[in-house]
């Protein structure tokens, strides 16, 4: 594995108050250079807090974050030279045009006027925003604003780009355009760390994924390896008319060949099984006698990995 560009060690963040909240509870993370790295987890898992600390906007309770060897807590101003950030919300400067948003960003990072103007023109071209150069952020659609934010975030040639929930609020088409733009950054040698609660997004663009829940990392690997780790599991959620004799059904289902686990969920049972021909028919026939109402099939995906690890859906 190549050298880690983001090194997170023993990171903890407790928000003080009447009821202290532990947002991050001992995270260790090593992001190799040049990858697109995803932090996947439900809302409130601690993804945004982790990113806030890494991007110098939150002070950790314990632990350290080093980016390209710079300790972000000890040297926040210098660390900002090597990172680019696109937060969840639109933070474009409303008083400046699209061009000026990038241009002044370049100036903050010390580029001379002419260099800054050239870099701005090049980025507007690269992100297909040239025709909107004179537009104010209020006049840009969500997708265009998001692209402009990414263009601005990489304008100073950061080594690591942090994207917090980049597809939140984007329509499907804009989301795919954003994915393309992010994947194109590989060519520029920028490491990307993104958070998401969409498993399709993690699956589609990330080289490695850390699944995070309740402030802890549950597992970390490539999406393919993660999916393989659950043994090519498929999940059948059975919705039952009543819950009578569910204990009996649970036992009966567990004896079917290929079924690895049966769990009680609200309104029915969840069957985890290896992908196998004819299995669904057997499950349905068995459950039918107990008042089966509906079956939902969840194909092997990062979602099944998450369910397997936490017993919950990502969306819950």
């Amino acid at each position: 594995m190549s050298e880690s560009i983001v090194e997170i060690l023993g990171l903890r963040k407790v928000y003080a108050g009447k009821n202290p909240v532990t947002a991050v509870d001992g995270i260790d993370l090593h992001v190799p250079s040049g990858l697109i790295y995803g932090l996947l987890g439900p809302n409130g898992a601690g993804k945004t807090t982790t990113i806030s600390i890494a991007t110098t906007r939150a002070i950790p309770t314990a632990g350290s974050v080093k980016i390209a060897g710079i300790d972000v807590v000890a040297h926040p101003a210098l660390a900002r030279c090597v990172i680019g950030v696109v937060p969840q919300y639109n933070t474009l400067d409303r008083s400046c045009t699209a061009f000026e948003n990038i241009y002044f960003h370049c100036r903050y990072f010390g580029m001379a006027k002419q260099v800054a103007a050239q870099r701005t023109a090049q980025l507007l071209e690269q992100f297909r925003l040239s025709d909107r150069a004179a537009a104010y952020p209020q006049a840009l659609s969500g997708g265009l604003a998001q692209r402009l934010q990414i263009a601005r975030a990489i304008a100073h040639h950061p080594k690591v780009l942090f994207l917090d929930e980049p597809s939140a609020g984007l329509d499907p088409q804009s989301r795919i355009a954003m994915w393309d733009a992010v994947q194109a950054l590989r060519g520029e040698g920028i490491t990307v760390v993104l958070t998401t609660h969409y498993m399709e997004e993690a699956d589609a663009i990330c080289d490695r994924v850390a699944i995070i829940d309740h402030g802890k990392i549950l597992i970390e690997d490539s999406p393919a390896a993660l999916k393989a780790s659950v043994g090519g599991d498929i999940i059948y959620d059975l919705r039952m008319r009543g819950v009578r004799d569910s204990g009996l059904l649970e036992k009966e289902l567990a004896t079917i060949e290929g079924v690895t686990r049966v769990e009680v969920i609200e309104g029915g049972l969840r069957v985890l099984a290896r992908v196998q021909d004819g299995l669904l028919a057997k499950v349905v026939t068995t459950a039918n006698e107990y008042g089966l109402r509906d079956v939902t099939t969840i194909e092997p995906s990062l979602e099944t990995v998450f369910i397997r690890l936490t017993g919950r859906d990502l969306r819950e």
Binding site: R57, P76, A77, L78, D93
Partner: peptide, 15 residues
């Protein structure tokens, strides 16, 4: 609402 100061806070300067 706008949080537009973010980009300026993220420039290489002490807060």
């Amino acid at each position: 609402v706008t949080r537009e100061i973010d980009d300026r806070v993220m420039c290489p300067l002490p807060i």
